[in-house]
Amino acid sequence: MHSTAVRIQNAFGFFTTIAFFVAALTALSTILYPANPSASINLRNIKVRTGRPHYTSTKSQEYLLLNFDLDADLSSLFNWNTKQVFAYLTVIYGSSGTANKHTENEMVLWDAILPSANAAKLHLVNEQAKYKVNDISGKFLESNATLRFEWNVQPHVGALCWGSIEADSEGNVLSQAEKGKRGKWSFQIPPAWGKKPATKKAAA
């Protein structure tokens, strides 16, 4: 500490140490704020249509189109260390039978960036899926699908954390043990253009 240059170095060096500890305590303080997000979903107008991925393409493939109602409250995720929350709705389905080798499929239907606690109370009615959904093989094969409402908390300091709410067709929550969820969360992907499957015709 004998000269100006050394004093600047020492003061700045200790400042970085203090800044590290303040940041670490800030990141740790997140555990003091337990969050209890809730969500309920109602599906409307689920249909599958065929189309071409590009107008120059000759390949026709199936697209899943749906509308949904979403009531969600993510405001409890906001505390002094929350920068923003990314919320998204995922459709999950497995393939039925051996026709499709891709047995686990997840796609994002809709998403939103929630910048504040005020914006974190979602009330969507008859919202259209934001992204078009198509299977890697081009056909959904009328699989059983489930919706999962997920979120990603982005803090100012510290680690990102994820959470989700998933439920079955009766609205019973399958994971994340959250309470107060209702609505239609799972469904069977309908055949393209609403046609009856060939097997059912044969049975009838």
Binding site: F14, W80, V157
Partner: peptide, 25 residues
């Protein structure tokens, strides 16, 4: 040296407490 250490630790504590109480980083 003593002044530097005391002031910086005090700054860190006050900064953290004020931010925590007012809930604003």
């Amino acid at each position: 040296e003593q002044l530097c250490n005391v002031l910086l630790v005090l700054t860190g504590v006050i900064a953290y407490v004020v931010g925590f109480v007012l809930q604003d980083l």
